[in-house]
């Protein structure tokens, strides 16, 4: 009997000493890449938009558990054969915004953009616009409060005019924070 009591005591001691527990809530920042691909038709100007439902970029198991968001880079690259220069701006419009807000402007030889240019690496061809970046960050954060739907645009000019169809690709790189409460299942729902 004494041995049993000691054994149970040992188990309880080892189970409780140090209060080994899993943290009550754990935040996993999920990397997120928002793609915006714009078609540039032959000519000297372009203006193209795409629509993005933010939910679709987040792993299904975390969609109900988004707490916060942030972004850290914008990348621009191009595809298609062209030898001139390109300039323009990338903008966002979402929620109740009356007009689009420019997130960044870009300008340079088309060939330079055939290698992805990034604001994070300090590309001389891209200039971030603070107000637009804040608006984009708010768009990402809106993932925490419900379905976020945004219009992403690229508009600008080509010199000389292009005779073929080209493409401009903008990638917004950010993170959304999935908050998991200890004891949740893999589906991220409450127990």
């Amino acid at each position: 009997m004494k041995a049993k009591i000691l054994l149970v005591g040992l188990v309880v001691f080892l189970a409780t000493s140090g209060s080994t527990c899993i943290n009550d809530t754990i935040i996993y920042p999920l990397d997120l890449k928002l793609p915006a691909d714009f078609t540039v038709n032959p000519g000297s100007t372009y203006n193209s938009s795409v629509y993005v439902l933010l939910d679709t970029l987040v792993d299904e198991q975390y969609r109900e558990d988004i707490k916060d968001a942030r972004f850290y880079d914008i990348q621009i690259f191009v595809s298609g054969t062209y030898t001139g220069t390109v300039s323009g701006n990338a903008s966002i419009r979402w929620g109740n915004m009356a007009t689009s807000q420019v997130v960044c402007t870009y300008s340079g030889p088309w060939s330079a953009f055939q290698t992805p240019q990034s604001i994070l690496s300090g590309s001389p061809y891209i200039t971030p616009v603070t107000a637009g970046m804040n608006s984009f960050r708010d768009f990402l954060k809106s993932a925490a409060t419900g379905m976020a739907f945004g219009q992403f645009s690229a508009a600008g000019s080509l010199s000389p005019a292009s005779t073929t169809q080209l493409q401009i690709h903008v990638r917004y790189l950010g993170q959304v924070d999935a908050i998991i409460k200890s004891g949740d299942g893999d589906d991220g729902t409450e127990p």
């Binding site: 189970a15 000493s17 140090g18 209060s19 527990c21 899993i22 943290n23 754990i26 935040i27 603070t130």
Partner: peptide
């Protein structure tokens, strides 16, 4: 300015690993 990056939280809250 305006950009940031976050690392994940820890999992265990403990001073003793049994």
């Amino acid at each position: 300015p305006g950009t940031s990056y976050r690392f994940p939280d820890g999992v265990f809250k403990t001073s003793f690993f049994p």
